[in-house]
Amino acid sequence: AVSDRLIGRKGVVMEAISPQNSGLVKVDGETWRATSGTVLDVGEEVSVKAIEGVKLVVEKLE
């Protein structure tokens, strides 16, 4: 699937994400809805860990 190529890629949070609410991330110039187990603020760099349906699962870049 086209989304599989995104796993491991870096992105930037465009709309804040929390465990309760999905947000938006931009990866390779495309905007995706994303979820995370932690709070991520706009502008934070993330990496794509998995894909669930049409949402990316991301975590903060260390």
Rank of each mutant, 00 (worst) to 15 (best):
1 A>P: 12
1 A>V: 15
1 A>R: 02
2 V>P: 15
2 V>C: 06
2 V>I: 15
2 V>G: 06
2 V>F: 04
2 V>M: 11
3 S>Y: 06
3 S>N: 12
3 S>Q: 08
3 S>I: 11
3 S>V: 10
4 D>Y: 03
4 D>W: 03
4 D>S: 06
4 D>E: 10
4 D>R: 03
4 D>M: 05
4 D>N: 08
5 R>S: 09
5 R>H: 13
5 R>K: 09
5 R>W: 14
5 R>E: 12
6 L>K: 03
6 L>A: 03
6 L>W: 06
6 L>Q: 03
7 I>H: 03
7 I>A: 03
7 I>V: 15
7 I>F: 04
7 I>D: 02
7 I>L: 10
8 G>M: 03
8 G>Y: 03
8 G>F: 03
8 G>V: 02
8 G>K: 04
8 G>D: 04
8 G>S: 04
9 R>V: 08
9 R>E: 08
9 R>C: 05
9 R>W: 09
9 R>I: 04
9 R>K: 12
9 R>G: 05
10 K>Q: 14
10 K>D: 11
10 K>T: 09
10 K>R: 11
10 K>P: 13
10 K>E: 12
10 K>M: 15
11 G>P: 01
11 G>T: 02
11 G>I: 01
12 V>A: 06
12 V>N: 05
12 V>E: 07
12 V>T: 09
13 V>R: 00
13 V>S: 02
13 V>E: 01
13 V>P: 00
14 M>Q: 08
15 E>L: 13
15 E>P: 00
15 E>T: 14
15 E>W: 09
15 E>H: 07
16 A>E: 09
16 A>C: 06
16 A>N: 09
17 I>G: 02
17 I>C: 04
17 I>V: 08
17 I>R: 01
17 I>F: 03
17 I>S: 02
18 S>R: 14
18 S>D: 09
18 S>M: 11
18 S>F: 11
18 S>I: 13
18 S>T: 15
18 S>E: 09
18 S>N: 14
19 P>C: 05
19 P>L: 07
20 Q>S: 15
20 Q>A: 12
21 N>Q: 13
21 N>S: 14
21 N>H: 13
21 N>V: 13
21 N>K: 11
21 N>E: 08
21 N>I: 14
21 N>P: 02
22 S>Q: 09
22 S>K: 05
22 S>V: 12
22 S>A: 11
22 S>T: 10
23 G>V: 02
23 G>S: 01
23 G>M: 03
23 G>Q: 01
23 G>T: 02
23 G>C: 02
24 L>E: 06
24 L>I: 15
24 L>D: 03
25 V>G: 00
25 V>C: 05
26 K>D: 09
26 K>E: 12
26 K>M: 15
26 K>S: 08
26 K>C: 06
27 V>L: 08
27 V>H: 01
27 V>R: 00
27 V>C: 04
27 V>S: 02
28 D>Y: 07
28 D>S: 08
28 D>P: 01
29 G>E: 10
29 G>D: 10
29 G>Q: 08
29 G>M: 15
29 G>R: 09
30 E>H: 12
30 E>G: 12
30 E>T: 09
31 T>R: 06
31 T>S: 14
31 T>M: 14
31 T>L: 15
31 T>Y: 09
32 W>F: 12
32 W>R: 04
32 W>K: 03
32 W>I: 04
33 R>G: 11
33 R>P: 15
33 R>A: 10
33 R>T: 14
33 R>S: 13
33 R>K: 15
34 A>S: 04
34 A>L: 01
34 A>H: 01
34 A>Y: 03
34 A>I: 01
34 A>E: 00
34 A>T: 02
35 T>S: 11
35 T>C: 05
35 T>A: 10
35 T>Q: 08
36 S>C: 05
36 S>P: 02
36 S>K: 01
36 S>H: 02
36 S>T: 03
37 G>T: 12
37 G>R: 08
37 G>W: 05
37 G>M: 09
37 G>S: 09
38 T>D: 11
38 T>G: 15
38 T>W: 10
38 T>A: 15
39 V>Y: 15
39 V>H: 14
40 L>R: 02
40 L>P: 01
40 L>H: 12
40 L>Q: 06
41 D>S: 13
41 D>P: 10
41 D>G: 13
41 D>C: 06
41 D>Q: 15
42 V>W: 05
42 V>Y: 06
42 V>H: 06
42 V>K: 10
42 V>Q: 08
42 V>S: 09
42 V>G: 04
43 G>V: 02
43 G>S: 07
43 G>N: 11
43 G>C: 05
44 E>R: 05
44 E>D: 12
45 E>C: 06
45 E>M: 14
45 E>Y: 14
45 E>P: 11
46 V>S: 02
46 V>Q: 00
46 V>P: 01
46 V>A: 05
46 V>I: 14
47 S>F: 09
47 S>T: 13
47 S>W: 11
47 S>Y: 12
48 V>W: 00
48 V>G: 01
49 K>A: 06
49 K>H: 06
49 K>I: 12
49 K>W: 07
50 A>F: 06
50 A>S: 10
50 A>R: 12
50 A>G: 13
50 A>C: 05
50 A>E: 07
51 I>L: 12
51 I>E: 02
51 I>R: 07
51 I>H: 05
51 I>S: 04
51 I>Q: 05
51 I>P: 01
51 I>A: 05
51 I>Y: 09
52 E>Q: 15
52 E>V: 15
52 E>D: 15
53 G>Q: 04
53 G>N: 13
53 G>R: 04
53 G>I: 03
53 G>D: 06
54 V>S: 12
54 V>R: 10
54 V>W: 15
54 V>Q: 10
54 V>M: 10
55 K>G: 12
55 K>N: 13
55 K>W: 10
55 K>V: 14
55 K>A: 10
55 K>D: 10
56 L>Q: 00
56 L>M: 06
56 L>N: 00
56 L>A: 03
57 V>S: 05
57 V>W: 10
57 V>C: 04
57 V>G: 03
58 V>E: 00
58 V>W: 00
58 V>T: 02
58 V>H: 00
58 V>C: 04
59 E>V: 10
59 E>Y: 11
59 E>D: 09
59 E>P: 00
59 E>I: 15
60 K>E: 04
60 K>V: 06
60 K>A: 11
60 K>I: 07
60 K>S: 07
60 K>M: 05
60 K>N: 04
60 K>R: 12
61 L>N: 11
61 L>R: 06
61 L>E: 10
61 L>S: 12
61 L>H: 11
62 E>N: 15
62 E>A: 14
62 E>H: 15
62 E>I: 09
